[in-house]
């Protein structure tokens, strides 16, 4: 991994998602209609979104993503749950998955490097 070509010091080729083509699609319906489609629906209990400044110079802290914190807080609140058993995170670069895991409360800061 570390021997692959450096893309932007210190991160290397395999630490970034590739430029890629593809598509995915889902069909969503209201609760009352679900059973006429499937007996294995995936319920969407809560969705949260947020935003943060686009200015890099105004971000202040590069090891946290405030929009991730805020969006997840909203999603958990709407879904009325306190923790998740599974998460799929934005992984454009390896470091982002670590930072998001911490912002979501899945991992404690400082401990990550020791795992």
């Amino acid at each position: 991994m570390l021997n692959s070509p450096v893309i932007s010091e210190p991160l290397t080729l395999y630490e970034f998602t590739p430029i890629s083509d593809g598509a995915t699609a889902i069909v969503i319906v209201r609760n009352e209609d679900v059973l006429s489609y499937t007996d294995k629906p995936v319920y969407i209990k809560g969705v949260g979104t947020s935003n943060y400044t686009s200015y890099v110079s105004e971000k202040g802290d590069f090891v946290t993503l405030p929009a991730v914190k805020e969006a997840s807080k909203k999603a958990f609140r709407k879904a009325k749950v306190e923790k998740a058993d599974f998460a799929e995170l934005h992984d454009m670069a390896t470091i982002l998955e670590i930072i998001q895991s911490e912002d979501l409360g899945f991992l404690e800061k400082e401990k990550v490097g020791r795992l």
């Binding site: 991994m1 570390l2 932007s8 010091e9 210190p10 991160l11 290397t12 395999y14 630490e15 970034f16 590069f62 090891v63 992984d91 454009m92 670069a93 390896t94 470091i95 982002l96 998955e97 670590i98 930072i99 800061k109 400082e110 990550v112 490097g113 020791r114 795992l115």
Partner: peptide, 23 residues
């Protein structure tokens, strides 16, 4: 992303390998 990685390693004394472990 590199800026975040550099800052992360510096602030938390995280080994470089631990970041690559994600991949």
């Amino acid at each position: 992303a590199s800026l975040s990685a550099i800052e992360y390693m510096k602030r938390f004394n995280a080994p470089r390998e631990s970041i690559a472990q994600v991949a």
